[in-house]
Design a protein around this nucleic acid. Structure first.
Lengths: 187, 187
DNA sequence: CTAAACATGTAAGAAGTTACATGATTAT
DNA sequence: ATAATCATGTAACTTCTTACATGTTTAG
């Protein structure tokens, strides 16, 4: 079975929900996968074209009078199989996540203690904002009346939990590292 | 002051150490920045060319008899200023880290419980290996005789600590999520 | 002797972002 | 009216990886 890139699989996955057009795929990603996946129109439309070419989906064009054409994509059997096949495949290797703050810290020898500290404080603040965003989204899902009937909400909460845990760990690292720099004052 | 990409700044930073050639820059990254930064020769050599063009470094070519030419790069005053300027600048926004496992989990509705579980177990195993690697490197640095005189070792330990903490958090998330799936058995 | 390490580079292609281009509909 | 949202798409550009091309030196 042919391999595609993750962006293609992400779109294939979204097409299993009620999102059927390029525009609504973008919305879905911005609303639901935002904290661990993003995508631009510059990728979505060409990828949809590829998906149709590869017969993983069929496109139904509805040209209502006056309105511009709207393209609705429906997964084919082949498309569903391709998606399932990818879902089963274990992750090959953990990605190396480039981290700008670690890079700056690493060359911190060329900077004053004060500047390193403010760099870390700024980073910590951004992490705390992100953490709060995750908590807010989580609360919104839990309080949403249909939450126990909606099959997606459980998965959504899992991904949020991941975000919360790793963000929390980063915040704690900031605090620990900041303390080291603050204590260096007297040395 | 002109802006460059992070890869350029990383190389500028490495040129402040004793690494002066494309080959040794690659080695330095593979040995020291490996867990949060990587780079290929296909980027290094063109970037070095750019750095010289922009007068951020000068190249000294030593052509020993017989041996192939070796290019040694030395930062100029302008190069040092450019690096320092970047170091000071706070991170603009936290990057969205694409996460393949979360993407697969999100579409887990289309998979059996068993397959989701083995996906998570495989991921957890990889994370545990990574964690052990970090611990080993940390021990090697701490036990290395010159560790308190080497100014780099402190920064190295900070970046390792970051890796350990975030990896640990991911492992804990795997355990928590796995438990949820294992308990779903009876429902 | 031969494999690994030293050493420098290019070319093709994949993946992704940003800006541009166009136009309808709906809410304020 | 006019701003926001709906809706689709392309082109240029940046970044990065992989494979290729070439040749020397050193260690086992």
């Amino acid at each position: 079975m042919k391999n595609y890139n993750d962006t293609t699989y992400a779109i294939l996955g979204i097409l299993t929900t009620n999102c059927r057009s390029g525009y609504s795929i973008k919305q879905f990603i911005d609303q639901s996968l935002n904290h661990f996946w993003k995508i631009s129109y510059g990728q979505i439309y060409p990828t949809l074209k590829l998906i149709v070419q590869e017969e993983l989906a069929e496109v139904h064009t509805s040209s209502s009078t006056g309105k511009p054409d709207k393209h609705e994509y429906y997964l084919t059997e082949k498309g569903i199989e391709t998606l399932k096949n990818w879902l089963e495949k274990p992750i090959e290797q953990l990605p190396v996540e480039r981290n700008e703050i670690l890079l700056k810290l690493f060359f911190g020898r060329f900077q004053s203690r004060e500047k390193t500290i403010s760099l870390l404080e700024n980073y910590k603040e951004k992490l705390e904002n992100r953490y709060q965003t995750y908590v807010s989204i989580e609360q919104a899902i839990i309080n949403y009346p249909d939450n126990d009937t909606d099959p997606d909400s459980m998965y959504w909460l899992f991904t949020l939990d991941y975000g919360k845990r790793t963000t929390r760990a980063s915040i704690e690292w900031c605090e620990f590292t900041l303390e080291k720099f603050l204590n260096k004052e007297d040395s």
